[in-house]
Design a protein around this nucleic acid. Sequence first.
RNA 1: GGCCCGUUCGUCUAGGGGUUAGGACGCAAGAUUUUCAUUCUUGUAGCAGGGGUUCGAAUCCCCUACGGGCUACCA
Length: 507
Amino acid sequence: MEQKVRVRFAPSPTGPLHMGGVRTALFNYLFARKHGGEFLLRIEDTDQTRYVPGAEEYIAESLTWCGLIPDEGVGFGGKFGPYRQSERKDLYKGYVDQLVESKNAYYAFDTPEELDALRSEAEMNQTVFSYDIHTRLKLKNSLTLPEEEVNRRIANGEAWVIRFKMPEHTDVIEEDLIRGEVKFNTAQLDDKVLYKADGMPTYHMANVVDDHLMQITHVIRGEEWLSSMPLHILLYRALGWGENRPRFAHLPLILKPTGKGKLSKRDGDKMGFPVFPLQWTDPVSGEISRGYREDDYFPEAFINMLALLGWNAGTEQEIFTIQELIDSFSLGRVVKSGARFDPEKAKWFNRHYLQQKNDAELAKLFKKQLEEKQLFTDDDKLTRIVGLIKDRCTFASELWEHGFYFFTAPDSYDEKTISKKWKEDTSEKLQAIAGFFKGLSSWDAESIKEAFSEFMNSREWNFGMVMVPIRLALVGSSQGIDLFVILELIGKEETVRRMERAVAEIH
RNA sequence: GGCCCGUUCGUCUAGGGGUUAGGACGCAAGAUUUUCAUUCUUGUAGCAGGGGUUCGAAUCCCCUACGGGCUACCA
């Protein structure tokens, strides 16, 4: 009988969630949904020194904005709680004791200073100090000290940690769901601290215990954890859970758009794109980091873009609804190598989603922008305008810059266009045309165009001489949609007013 | 340094012994729009290098180079 799939996203509340973190959450979510399983959010706050206030709320809000709602977790209920590791503190000691009892772990009394000294000493000799099978018998721990002294030190309240006793020269072979067989030898691995002097477990211990207790079936996480996979496997075995432990899948990292290394906050600042889902204000420095939400990305576009960064369906499809992602997702199709992030492609996804939205929906967004400027118009007209200008937009926030002229006269005229298209006799012509417009009785794009053509013919003027100048008068530059539609929508009076103003102001 | 992972157009990727190496973003050109943008069409550009295996390698193996991760009482 197959076990029910349970996966978890387990971030550390040390700051805002990085877009790589969101992608990890996404892949977990997709995997859970695909297999009818559950997706949980666990907060890994075992390092109290790195805790950042607000980070936890930020994580929950980010997932919510992205539509990746956990089935269980901090703030989302569930029967396997608490889901915050600091609240599970008491629970870990028993398992650590069990490991000490079974000789899989031992007490160590070496101080951080002593270890640092050993590390720098090793560095001077061009080597690296490692607390492992070769060195542990020369250090201060329950393997080397007499039992009475160990007990005495503990009773005296001396600081101690518990370390895993890495077994001697054995191969740990595991089938990673993305990478295939990965092989390690314990001879290369050190005796990691499992339980810290402050009474908190380290990541490794808490992770293994919680994944077991929360009945996690698949651990889907970033590649930075691949190296600790053997330790985790050994821990499951040592705790007697080796037969029923989760399977692992290690995701490739997201790399900088250019240059070396993984994507960082700095890259976003430098190159002008967000690396976080939501805007974040650092509680200490007050520094603000932009977010995809505030930069006006649609969450669907953000998610779609993230999904295709390191995964593909094996078809040429690139646009996926979340349901389509769920249906076609598989870990086997996750790419093994790191992916450089391309901000341009992210924009392309947003543009695509924006074009797919219906006009009325976008009109609502546009209406908000207009209201902020104290401009109002009826919904039908607004919807029509949106339909006319949306294909020029990548973000909904650009609706204004591409449609402002329907609501307000230009506040300046583009110099280049003036020098190129505004001739000696342009003012005169525009004045005549404005006068002609005044006398028109029907004011819709078709009729205006027809009447205007006749007028132009009668004067033996050609369109090219005046079209751009009229546009300049109405819009302020040589941009915009079909001129006669603009005329119709801004109305006769406003058209004439703008033309007269342009004649007066442009020389 | 050690261990582990990776390497197809500038970027994201398809490909799993025989393909004119496909798509997308970007970029460029043309068309259309008496403007600009859109749109459409076309083009641009790639198997890191070297050895094997094989009748035949982007595909399998080895070496090298390069990139990435880990190497904390951080996750």
